[in-house]
């Protein structure tokens, strides 16, 4: 109830994992944990779909539809009649864009 974030597009095929531990190194939310034989999916609901794990997995054991969870970008795209998923979190650059200002630690859309 009142939790839209319990499910996401992350899929992990444990059988393909070669235990290189890359996913545990790139995930900013500890979704994957090291295991004796293969990486363990420790906190799947914490996934923010950044896509780092899937992009860095050498054996395609991880799949995720990566994107930026920015309502502002999605609503703007929808208002302009575009596909919501094409709603780029247009960081930096021109006026009226999101992101910027912050250091590495902050996410997108800091400066709208």
């Amino acid at each position: 109830m009142f939790d839209s974030y319990a499910e996401n597009t992350l899929q992990y095929h444990k059988d393909r994992c070669i235990n290189c531990k890359r996913c545990t190194q790139v995930c900013p939310h500890g979704v994957f944990a090291e295991g004796p034989e293969h990486a363990e999916l420790a906190h799947p609901a914490a996934c923010m779909e950044c896509g780092a794990c899937a992009l860095n997995c050498p054996v395609q054991a991880i799949e995720v539809q990566s994107g930026v969870g920015c309502a502002w970008a999605m609503i703007s795209a929808a208002i302009r009649g575009k596909d919501m998923d094409s709603g780029e979190c247009s960081c930096g650059g021109s006026e009226g864009s999101c992101c910027g200002v912050q250091e590495e630690k902050s996410s997108c859309c800091n400066e709208k």
């Binding site: 974030y5 914490a46 923010m48 539809q65 990566s66 969870g69 920015c70 999605m74 630690k105």
Partner: peptide
């Protein structure tokens, strides 16, 4: 720093 696109 943590919202997923699916959830949003």
């Amino acid at each position: 720093t943590f919202t997923s696109r699916t959830g949003v």
